[in-house]
């Protein structure tokens, strides 16, 4: 009797830890946030149900849309060059190379460094006074740039930071996928007289298609959730604003500002759900984009 139960139910028990943990740390916060987004909830005070009021306020909130614009711009400036660079590096590393493992490990190192450390160090590089980047552009005669107060410079500085950290990661993913492409395809293509570029376009890229989907979607999610880099990059009083006139405040920063700074937890939760919707929309769009541009 017991042994039959055992066979029937113990598999569920074995997978239970995941579902219990997911329920506690994933599902419950999700549902709670959904509920909170329908309330006016002072974090340390009163709360009341307001229905969809937060969402209608969000639609006409210029600072929210400003954050959406910033996040999207930083995502674009960071991700597009990063994809090409990662593809290029993966192609290089896929060729016979001396000390191959060393190079492959080296390229992954930025990804395992602490995020805060990266942001602090780049913050120093991009200082207006005594910053190394301004020193180098000064050598070619460009005036010092105030990286934290102007929109484009701040976006570029942040994109640099993101690319430094994530290019290696994507390179390795691409590399793994490239190695799964059968070598004889390349051999026969070479026999037919296809050059390296032709081989890359006709064999490598189509072979990478599923991986491209994965990488692009992961980058989309990461890009929209951008928070720590701009926060530490800005630093100091009012860091959460992302620049004096919110030049590089991201959606995640705006969410934090509303929830933990202004203590409007209901509104902050609504921003969180809007962010979720944005991620879903852009993941689908990017998926379609990759499907169109890289053919099987």
């Amino acid at each position: 009797m017991f042994s039959r139960w055992d066979i029937k139910y113990s598999p569920y028990l074995y997978v239970a830890p995941f579902f219990v943990l997911f329920g506690v740390f994933g599902l419950y916060p999700l549902l709670m946030t959904a509920y909170m987004s329908l309330t006016d909830w002072n974090l340390i005070g009163d709360r009341s149900f307001v229905g969809l009021e937060n969402y209608s306020a969000l639609l006409v909130d210029e600072y929210f849309w400003n954050a959406v614009r910033n996040t999207f711009a930083i995502f674009l400036i960071a991700t597009v060059p990063q994809m090409f660079l990662a593809l290029f590096l993966a192609t290089l590393l896929n060729r016979p190379l001396r000390a191959r493992t060393f190079w492959r490990m080296l390229i992954f190192v930025p990804n395992v460094t602490s995020l805060a450390a990266v942001a602090v160090v780049f913050g120093v590089f991009f200082r207006r006074d005594f910053g190394i980047v301004n020193y180098f552009i000064g050598l070619v005669g460009i005036d010092p740039i105030s990286w934290r107060t102007e929109q484009w410079p701040s976006w570029i500085a942040l994109a640099t930071m993101i690319d430094w950290r994530w290019t290696g990661y994507n390179t390795l993913i691409f590399l793994a996928a490239m190695q799964a492409i059968p070598k004889d395809l390349y051999e026969s293509a070479a026999l037919d007289g296809a050059g390296r570029w032709r081989q890359f376009l006709s064999i490598t890229l189509p072979g990478l298609r599923p991986t491209l989907f994965f990488v692009v979607i992961i980058s989309t999610i990461g890009g929209w959730q951008l928070f720590t880099e701009p926060l530490i990059f800005n630093g100091g009083g009012g860091a959460i604003l992302g620049g004096a006139r919110r030049e590089f405040q991201t959606v995640a920063m705006y969410m934090y500002e509303k929830a933990f700074d202004n203590l409007q937890f209901g509104y902050g939760s609504a921003v969180a759900f809007a962010l979720f919707a944005l991620i879903v929309i852009f993941s689908v769009l990017n998926y379609l984009l990759v499907r169109r541009s890289v053919r099987n």
Partner: peptide
């Protein structure tokens, strides 16, 4: 003024560098 935001890394550095 040095146009430095208070509490920022530039501010802290400014104290040391005499900005």
């Amino acid at each position: 003024t040095a146009k430095i935001r208070t509490w920022s890394p530039e501010w802290t550095a400014g104290f040391q560098q005499g900005t």
